[in-house]
C-alpha cells in the first residue's frame, strides 16, 4: 500500500525540552488517520514538522513523496493544512482571505468553491467581515475552507472541530469521511477520542513526544475494546512509568 506520510526517527528538541522523540510513522493513502494524545504530547509539533513549518531536530519526513525538510514550500503546495490556532490575516475579510489563499496557490476562479464553503459551513453572512472581528468558530470555519480549497490529496488538520457547534461538527465529520471515500487522505490530530473512534480508519497515540501505540478502531472492536479506554490505559501507564 502506498504511503502518503513516512516519518523515520522524527524528533524535535527545544533546548532541553523534547517535544517529539524519534517518531516512526506511516500513513497509507486513503486513510483517515488520527494522531491522538493529551495536551502537550507533541501532536501539533509533529504536524508542523511534516508540513515544513518547523525543521526537525533529527530524522526524516516524506509527505506525498516530498522531503519536508528539503522542500517545505513544496509540501505546503501539495497538502491542505489547518494549523493549531486559527490565524487568518487580521485585516482581510473572510472572502478576501479565501481569494488570497487561492491566489497564493495559483488557483483561478475560486469564487464557486468559496461560495460552496460559505454555504456548507453556514457563514456566508460573515464573508465581508474582517477576520480579526470574526468569532473563533468562524475563523476556524475559514481555516477549514482554505485547507480544502484546492482539493488536496492529503490534508493535515490540527484539532479542526474544537470551536465548532454540534451541527457543524456533525457536517464536518461527514465531509471528512466522504472526502476520504473519494480517494484522499486525512491526517487528523485530536484529543476528542470519541470523534477519532467514530471516523478514523487508523490511529497513533502520542504521549510526551513518544509513540505509544498504533492500530485501527476495527482491531480494537474485534478485541472488544474502545479507543478511549485503551488511550487512557496507555497514557496512565506511561505517566506512572515516567
Amino acid at each position: 500500500m502506498a504511503m502518503v506520510i513516512e516519518a523515520r526517527g522524527l524528533s524535535k528538541h527545544y533546548g532541553e525540552t523534547v517535544a517529539v522523540d524519534s517518531l516512526d510513522l506511516e500513513v497509507p493513502a486513503g486513510a483517515l488517520y488520527g494522531l491522538l494524545g493529551p495536551n502537550g504530547s507533541g501532536k501539533s509539533t509533529t504536524i508542523r514538522m511534516l508540513t515544513g513549518q518547523t525543521p526537525a531536530s533529527a530524522g526524516t519526513a516524506t509527505v506525498l513523496g516530498v522531503d519536508a525538510a528539503a522542500d517545505p514550500v513544496g509540501v505546503r503546495r501539495l497538502v491542505g493544512i489547518i494549523p493549531e490556532q486559527e490565524t487568518p490575516p487580521s485585516f482581510l475579510t473572510a472572502a478576501e482571505y479565501l481569494r488570497f489563499a487561492g491566489a497564493v496557490r495559483g488557483l483561478d476562479g475560486i469564487e464557486e468553491a468559496a461560495a460552496w464553503w460559505f454555504e456548507f459551513l453556514d457563514f456566508g453572512d460573515k464573508k465581508d467581515v474582517l477576520c480579526k472581528d470574526l468569532s473563533r468558530g468562524t475563523r476556524q470555519k475559514l481555516m477549514f475552507a482554505q485547507a480544502f480549497l484546492h482539493s488536496p490529496r492529503l490534508a493535515l488538520i490540527d484539532e479542526p472541530l474544537v470551536n465548532f457547534d454540534p451541527i457543524v461538527q456533525h457536517d464536518v465529520k461527514e465531509f471528512l469521511v466522504d472526502y476520504v471515500r473519494r480517494g484522499n487522505t486525512i491526517f487528523l490530530s485530536t484529543h476528542i477520542l470519541e470523534v477519532a473512534e467514530e471516523v478514523c480508519t487508523g490511529f497513533a497515540i502520542l504521549h510526551r513526544g513518544r509513540l505509544l501505540a498504533t492500530g485501527t478502531p476495527d482491531e480494537l472492536r474485534e478485541a472488544g475494546r474502545h479507543l478511549p479506554d485503551v488511550f487512557l490505559e496507555l497514557v496512565r501507564q506511561d505517566r506512572n512509568h515516567v
Binding site: 489547518i82 494549523p83 481555516m143
Partner: peptide
Amino acid sequence: AFDTLGAYACLPVGVGD
C-alpha cells in the same frame, strides 16, 4: 508590523517569498 505570519503557515510560501 501588522502581518500575522501564522496565516502563511498553511500556504506554500517561504520566508524568502
